[in-house]
Amino acid sequence: MKTLTDAWDWLTDSAHWAGDDGIWHRLTQHLVLTVVCLVISCLIALPVALVLGHLGKGGALAVNISNVGRAVPTFAVLVLLLLTPLGQYGEGPTVVALVLFAVPPLLTNAYVGMRGVDREVVRAARGMGMTGRQMLLRVEAPLALPMILTGVRIAAVQLVATATIAALAGGGGLGRIITAGFNLASTPQVVAGAVLVAVFALVVEGLFEIAERLAPAWARGRAGG
């Protein structure tokens, strides 16, 4: 219990919120990293997944890439990138590593969603004289939306976690409060940093949960069927 009250004291000390190592700055870094990398990952993964799903090609690749991603340690990739010439560019290694780990869930879920669209519906769309592009954008993509959004949600949570580990390899973000705490042998700071990271991750997950509940029925998780 002593540690918890110490961690609380650390968190409520206004001196720990200001400055370059302060909580506000680290929180902003974490948020920017997560959002920017999520946008980049979506721009890379979703067009590829939608086109592959529409054509019905590259399925084995799209599905297995998630399994491969799981076997590769995030920390190892971060350090490997840091030791390449890319390491000279500040947050460069962090951004590349984050995108690398966010792409697989986006790709897999969007692809599975596209292939899960009822073939009868696709045939009906073709019968109505739709072109391939029209079918993709007006029929398949909207029907695959629940799965695509599930992928975005998994990717977002993954990004928050990876951005935390990036602190071990010198990246910015809330993880730096934890690593600094370890360097100072300050258990209260380590626990306070961990609480901040955990709350941040749960808020991201919670926001997606709320968005899913507020979404119209056809865009919701178990619709589409």
């Binding site: 602190a167 071990l168 258990t187 961990a194 997950e205």
Partner: peptide, 17 residues
């Protein structure tokens, strides 16, 4: 679900005390 959402570095840190 809550446990799985907590990033690994934070999880290890929360167990430190």
């Amino acid at each position: 679900t809550v446990l799985y959402t907590i990033p690994s570095l934070a999880m290890f840190s929360l167990l430190l005390p």
